[in-house]
Design a protein around this nucleic acid. Sequence first.
DNA 1: AAATTTAAAAGTGTCGAGATAATGAAATTA
DNA 2: TAATTTCATTATCTCGACACTTTTAAATTT
Lengths: 237, 237
Amino acid sequence: MTNRPMVALEGGGTLVDTAYSSLRRDIISGERPAGERLRIEKLKTLYGIGPTPLREALQKLAQDGLVVTEGNRGFTVAPLDPAEFEDLNQARIAIEKAALTLSIARGGDAWEARVVAATYLMDKEDTALPQATDGVPDSWERANTEFHTALVSACGSAWLLRVRIGLHDLCERYRRASVYQRLGSRDLSSEHSAIATAALARDVDRVCALTEAHFALTALALRDATDLGEERIRAER
Amino acid sequence: MTNRPMVALEGGGTLVDTAYSSLRRDIISGERPAGERLRIEKLKTLYGIGPTPLREALQKLAQDGLVVTEGNRGFTVAPLDPAEFEDLNQARIAIEKAALTLSIARGGDAWEARVVAATYLMDKEDTALPQATDGVPDSWERANTEFHTALVSACGSAWLLRVRIGLHDLCERYRRASVYQRLGSRDLSSEHSAIATAALARDVDRVCALTEAHFALTALALRDATDLGEERIRAER
DNA sequence: AAATTTAAAAGTGTCGAGATAATGAAATTA
DNA sequence: TAATTTCATTATCTCGACACTTTTAAATTT
């Protein structure tokens, strides 16, 4: 009845949180390209946030691996290194398989239902994808995220899922940076439904194998697109 | 030949780094117990570091999961929740198994040699452990860390190893908080050598099973020690 | 005793100044 | 001329003080 905090309309609670999520979003999306120097003064005007919350947010991002901070040379957006992407992708696949294994072993009716629902929506987006004019639509991205999230949702470990998200976002930046995303040449609908079918059949090995191939294909396509933003940002003054 | 940066002798580079590692060490060791309020003013005098680097370090630790920061209520050491430990342990075991699988598949002569060396030292410590008077000696801890690290060292993904370390440190805090560590009642020497033998024989399934049991036993012992520092720190003024 | 109001405490964010380190340019030396 | 050293500029880092907000505790009222 009294004056409540009015709810955070947008940006959550503290300025550190808003700075963190804004920067995170912009770095992953590529709006803040790899190698860019993140000078506090510039960010201050860009995001309308003071230096203290900005520094704290940058330190958090450094912990995530999205920002690097070397000695007394300020902050920069983490570089995009093909070798690191291989590394990252291996870790991601390993964790995805572990989560899938646990989830399939433990998932109950609710899990099955969620998987079925996600697969249904995914299939709709997959079949509509070839008609898409400009790039991959946002709705497809959301369906894809939910599809894979649903599969691992019953793994039973919030920490495993948290780690999974972290690596996913790191990979996401690489994916976004890749100019040539020829998803069109793949039969995503088949790939996804095969995974879902195997999951509901509790065929762990098959799900893992299919998922690994699924991820590896994306990685391969990205690898072939030789440069992923080789426009090194050097002069910045 | 010219004047190199002289190397960071101790304390690393910035004060943020020293604050981060100091706090991290103290939180994991239990010197800063779970639930303790981390007031900047107090930490300032404790560590002799100003408020700015302290806040940044605390934000990094919050990202690690060792510190929680809720709304505008400052920082506190993350609570020790038995349920979270289960969760954490599951994630840790899953990642350890994934890393082991990759490492065993890829390890070469150098890896085998490292495993053999680590096993040799581990065995020495394991047999000497029962004679230890006060708790687990530091040398045993080091040998144990190197033993398990050696096994996964050839997994090929620095990120997987990084994640592994993070979860390990989180679990470490739970382990340290447990009063009753009855390692004495276990035949660690046998457990370790069995793992090493299976690893060198490239028997992935066996290594994973043994390692899982190995970890699960520690978790079980910790779980039985009902309270892991239930002395809730409440009044703090 | 319960609830509201009031006051104190703690946390967050801004600003500006000073210390330290890194970068780049000029000057010296080989 | 090339390489090294010296110097000046710049930027980052750190501190402390102050304003503002939220939380927490106490006091008052009902």
